[in-house]
Write a protein that binds this DNA or RNA. Structure first.
Lengths: 195, 195
DNA sequence: GCAATAATGTACTGACTGGTATATAATAGA
DNA sequence: TCTATTATATACCAGTCAGTACATTATTGC
């Protein structure tokens, strides 16, 4: 097996560190020096493991999705009702986009949207993330259709939820407080669910 | 009056051209060469008229707000009911963030949110824009409070509207179609207004 | 121990960045 | 016409960027 000198770092740990840098400084705002310092590896190792800056960024986005966004989403999928599951989900997502451990905002909403007009790969990742969110939420709303406010169909509810999350991420990025996010979350629940 | 050689360009026209470049490529993605080419002025003229790149960007944001965002908003303020005014407003904003003449998305939602962790001035502009939107919408919802869905107070409705607009801008930026924006707009109206 | 292989560390490259120095041209007032 | 003032045009600067060449070190298979 594995010939040659063994890698001295763990690629997932390095990717986790890259996430934090990109998350705070953005794609263009992050330099290779920023990355190598944070990841504690040198340039050739970075290029050997992650191809180039854009591929590293896209890998970081993928890992960000599974590490930060997937867990609250899974709990929503498994919730027995929207009335219980939706507020908990929004609380979980609120904790992702605003907390003391990680930079404010959402990598997808706040970072991809600026960069996406320049790179087809980044634009594809953003469109794909939105489509994934919509198509994850829609069957959940189908399942609990009876709880939806009259006039709100599951497909529309799913898109409204995705859209509101992106807007909340921007607000967190701007420095908006937890209180505002909570108000928006609970307002959204009241707007989407019946009585 | 005006001593010295007269300026050979109109500053507002030049700013309008700068808006388009920044809107498409973002703050960091736009170079001085991009700007001077689009604005059809040379570097020293740009610096004499707009101080530096960041100040030019902030000026472009201000003009973008008054040129693109203010007109639909004024119509909403003057509308006689939410039932009529809100769909028209959303249609107008949809036309701003997605049309054939200008780049997709919103300069505030899509551009400021990436950059804002690096520059206090840009972060301030984003937070200020959000606060302005909230405080513009809130009295409108107060005025037509009777039209709001039960359980949705004016302050919350205002924040939900601002938040949804930002999310819609991101969707447009990603390449989402007009159809999706229309669906989200009409869903939002149904969610916010009563019966 | 001896190749072959692959990661590491250093130093480098050409391209591009935002910003400016210098010289020239055009105006107003005298 | 002369001077003061301001815009324009060209060329330039130091710094930074993403990416890489090269020499070295550590491992596997023989």
């Amino acid at each position: 097996m594995a010939k040659g000198r063994p890698r001295e770092f763990d690629t997932e740990e390095a990717l986790d560190k890259a996430i934090i840098v990109f998350w705070r400084k953005g794609y263009r705002g992050t330099s290779l020096d920023d990355l190598t310092e944070a990841m504690e590896i040198n340039r050739p190792s970075l290029y050997a493991a992650f191809v180039d800056k854009e591929r590293l960024f896209l890998s970081a986005i993928d890992r960000y999705r599974s590490k930060f966004l997937a867990p609250p989403t899974k709990k929503l999928i498994n919730a027995s009702s929207l009335r219980e599951g939706l507020p908990e989900f929004l609380k979980g997502m609120g904790a992702v986009i605003l907390n003391d451990e990680t930079p404010p905002g959402c990598m997808i909403a706040c970072l991809l949207s600026e960069e996406c007009c320049d790179s087809a790969a980044i634009k594809g990742k953003l469109l794909d993330s939105i489509a994934l969110a919509d198509s994850t939420f829609q069957p959940i709303f189908e399942k609990h259709k009876a709880e939806l406010a009259p006039g709100i169909d599951p497909a529309t509810a799913a898109r409204l939820l995705t859209t509101a999350l992106h807007g909340m991420a921007i607000r967190a990025r701007a420095g908006g407080g937890k209180r505002d996010l909570v108000r928006i979350s609970s307002g959204l629940v009241r707007a989407l669910l019946c009585g």
